[in-house]
């Protein structure tokens, strides 16, 4: 009996100590960690828009995030968009609810600052103020709209889809006509040397410049990647571009409407990324068109 008690107490105490250490480290580091994640997303976004340290973003470039929620009331589902709206000199937020056919239902002002809106927990508590039970809401996805001056420059879509092993997380940049501006793989766990090559320039840059029409019908071909195309795709990385000035444009237009060349030994990963991107673009184009129709018909003073 004495033994049992000693073992129980010993285990409990060691668990408590471990929990205490882990918990306090978490509390200390949480803020810095969140900050790093935020910086990371910002860097990915700017990188996709073509801004680097040596070529910084202009000061009138603004990034606005909109968040899509799915609201359910008994059996009916509606869509709720948390939209940044112009309020005085700053940006406020409102929740705009529409049904699945794109018909406007209602709009509610939300009491949030842009800093608070980027935190999932803060958004939830603000939404709870206006979405009263028995109605419930579930977070669906986010979109970042990049605006340069008064024009929309690009849409940035964080997304995920199943790869060969686990989910592949990506960030996709589209211009206002839904042409792909760039693709960045943010998280993946494919096989190193095979599927993991999806994050290499010579694969992901193949998506760059594909038009909306082309993306709708994008396939993967199991052909070796032509050398000149590979050199073109990797030209950003190389210090001295191996391609003569005049030829860059020629190579670009030659391959612009080609399908995606599969990676050697990783056809499934290549296909997963291609299909995932295809899906993301198609769904997003559909959604944003509906959203824009409602916004313009209701004269919502959106910031983006």
């Amino acid at each position: 009996m004495k033994q049992i008690i000693r073992i129980t107490v010993g285990l409990t105490v060691s668990c408590l100590i471990a929990a205490l250490v882990m918990g306090s480290v978490f509390v200390i580091t949480d803020k810095a960690k969140k900050h790093n994640e935020h910086v990371d997303v910002q860097e990915t976004v700017l990188g996709l828009l073509g801004y680097t340290k040596s070529h910084p973003a202009p000061s009138d470039l603004k990034l606005y995030s909109l968040y899509r929620y799915i609201l359910t009331d008994a059996d009916t589902s509606t869509l709720g968009y948390v939209l940044p709206v112009l309020k005085g000199d700053g940006v406020g937020y409102q929740l705009m609810v529409m049904d699945l056919d794109g018909q406007f239902i209602h709009q509610y002002p939300l009491d949030m600052t842009p800093e608070k809106a980027s935190e999932a927990a803060e958004r939830s508590s603000a939404l709870q103020e206006v979405v009263k039970p028995p109605k419930t809401f579930v977070y669906a996805d986010a979109t970042i709209v990049a605006k340069l001056g008064k024009k929309r420059l690009a849409y940035l879509l964080p997304g995920e889809f199943p790869g060969f092993k686990t989910f592949i997380h990506v960030m996709l940049a589209l211009d206002p006509s839904f042409e792909i501006l760039g693709l960045e793989i943010t998280e993946q766990e494919e096989d190193p040397g095979l599927g993991a090559e999806i994050k290499q320039d010579y694969f992901k840059n193949q998506f760059k410049g594909k038009s909306f029409e082309k993306v709708k019908d994008l396939h993967v071909v199991k052909e070796p990647l032509p050398d000149e195309y590979k050199a073109y795709l990797e030209s950003k990385k190389a210090k001295a571009s191996p391609i003569p000035e005049g030829e860059v444009e020629a190579i670009r237009s030659r391959y612009q409407d080609k399908d995606i060349y599969a990676l050697t030994g990783a056809t499934i990963s290549s296909k997963a990324v291609t299909d995932g991107v295809k899906n993301m673009v198609a769904k997003f184009a559909y959604r944003i068109n509906r959203l824009d129709t409602v916004i313009s018909s209701r004269h919502i003073p959106v910031a983006f």
Partner: peptide, 13 residues
Amino acid sequence: TWVTVIDLVLAAY
């Protein structure tokens, strides 16, 4: 515990 601590510290700093 050590794995968690190292993971969190790396992620933060």
